[in-house]
Amino acid sequence: MLVYEKNSLSEEIELLIERFGKDRVALLPILQIIEKRHNYISEFAQQEVARLLDIHPVEVYSVVSFYNFLHRYPQGKNIVRLCKTISCDMAGKQEIEKALKRELGINFDETTRDKKWTLEYTSCLGMCDQGPAMLVNDKIYTKLDPETAVKILNDTK
């Protein structure tokens, strides 16, 4: 990471600390905002958060690794999360899976080269009666078939 990037990140985190308070309970909201702005929480950002909250970097790392919606490594701008649970599987998840892979040219848990798309599995989205379901960023799409899935991707672009 370049020095000026680090400096601006530090400043950003300092502002967040001012907003949420210098207490360890402020950790999650701060991490969520960093994730939202940068699509991931870098090693440096984790250490800065730890330093400013006066906790250990490894504790921040532990929290980041615990939650699926917080990322340790750079992600694409858009994240597609396909439900992997049994009812979506029975409703035809595999077809959607293939279509998504083909359209984006990547496997699951990978990011496209232009850093636009990341493909992930997720646990149940609670749409078992309307499967297969997927989550694109924070919007949910249900009753998918391969064509609509590809169309959704194109519309999101």
Binding site: E43, Q46, H56, P57, V58, E59, S62, S65, F66
Partner: peptide, 20 residues
């Protein structure tokens, strides 16, 4: 209060790990 080790990941993927 040195803070080298912590549990990372979740469930059956839990591990004891250092920072990154």
């Amino acid at each position: 209060e040195v803070g080298v080790l912590e549990a990372i990941n979740r469930g059956d993927k839990t591990q004891i790990s250092t920072f990154y």
